[in-house]
């Protein structure tokens, strides 16, 4: 690799230029709920201050693991003033106290929904059942949405289940696949190429443009826990989701839910 020496990082938070239309506020370098709380805290402040003159021209922002990227119209924004305001807000250290919504989402491990479950169990010297029960026991924090519309990057995968991505990515991962890689868990909203390991499937639509106000099911800051469902229950929920009649709000809150109909 390189012979060059890394310059030391300046103290966090830092406001860095991404382009002439975006700035990124960086709070740290590691996946850490405390760092993410600072990211979400700044996002909340921006939401509250949307109409403030110092934020003129700001159009949107993305909360990610350790950073908040702010997009603006340079024909409207005073970039130097915006940069100073973001530094001031970030430095004020407001952390989002509220953790976002808590979801209990259905997950099925049957049929051909979990093609990498056996491999993962073998790699870790566990039974498939042990993998599933460890997976179900954890709570996952949505750090950011990216890669695809509605695709959640969730931290919190138990260490015993942490394996690298597939050496050769699949050319097609089925929509609604529940996937793991490293310490992360995700759900593929659409079929797509992908290198994460597939260990289950949810019947829900992670992204639906018909839900105009909130097309993505999950948002950065949300917490997800999983509830096991069998293949029959999966089929019933999937049919509702395909028909557009499944109200995802029923999966809000701490589980377990009673899905008996």
């Amino acid at each position: 690799m390189s012979t060059g020496e890394a310059r030391p990082f300046a103290p966090f938070p830092q406001v860095r230029p991404l382009s002439d239309t975006a700035l990124t506020v960086v709070f740290g370098t590691e996946v850490d709920p405390q760092v993410h709380a600072q990211v979400m805290g700044l996002a909340r402040q921006l939401e509250a201050l949307r109409d403030a003159p110092a934020l003129a021209g700001v159009s949107e922002w993305i909360a990610s693991f350790t950073a908040l990227t702010v997009y603006f119209d340079p024909d409207v924004a005073d970039v130097a003033a915006l940069e100073a305001e973001l530094a001031r807000l970030a430095g004020a250290g407001a952390k989002a106290i509220l953790a976002g919504r808590v979801w209990t989402l259905p997950a099925c491990f049957e049929n051909d929904y979990a093609p990498d479950l056996a491999d993962l169990a073998r790699l870790q010297g566990l039974s498939e059942e042990a993998v599933v029960s460890q997976f179900l026991a954890a709570r996952y924090r949505v750090y950011t949405i990216g890669f695809l519309p509605g695709f959640p990057y969730m931290g919190g995968l138990p260490e015993a289940l942490q394996v690298p991505r597939l050496a050769t990515p699949r050319t097609e991962v089925p929509a609604r696949s529940i996937a793991v890689a490293g310490g992360m868990c995700a759900i593929y909203p659409f079929k797509s190429p992908g290198g994460w390991r597939l260990i289950g499937r949810t019947p829900l639509n992670l992204f639906d443009p018909a839900r105009e106000a909130e097309p993505a099911l999950l948002a950065a800051g949300d917490t997800v826990q999983w509830q096991r469902i069998d293949a029959a229950r999966f089929a019933a929920l999937e049919a509702e989701a395909d028909a557009g009649t499944l109200d995802p709000q029923q999966f809000l809150g701490e589980g377990p839910h009673d899905h008996a109909s």
Partner: peptide, 13 residues
Amino acid sequence: NDRGADILSDGVL
């Protein structure tokens, strides 16, 4: 350099 190519995903454009 020693920090490598991979970062924790952040916003792009």
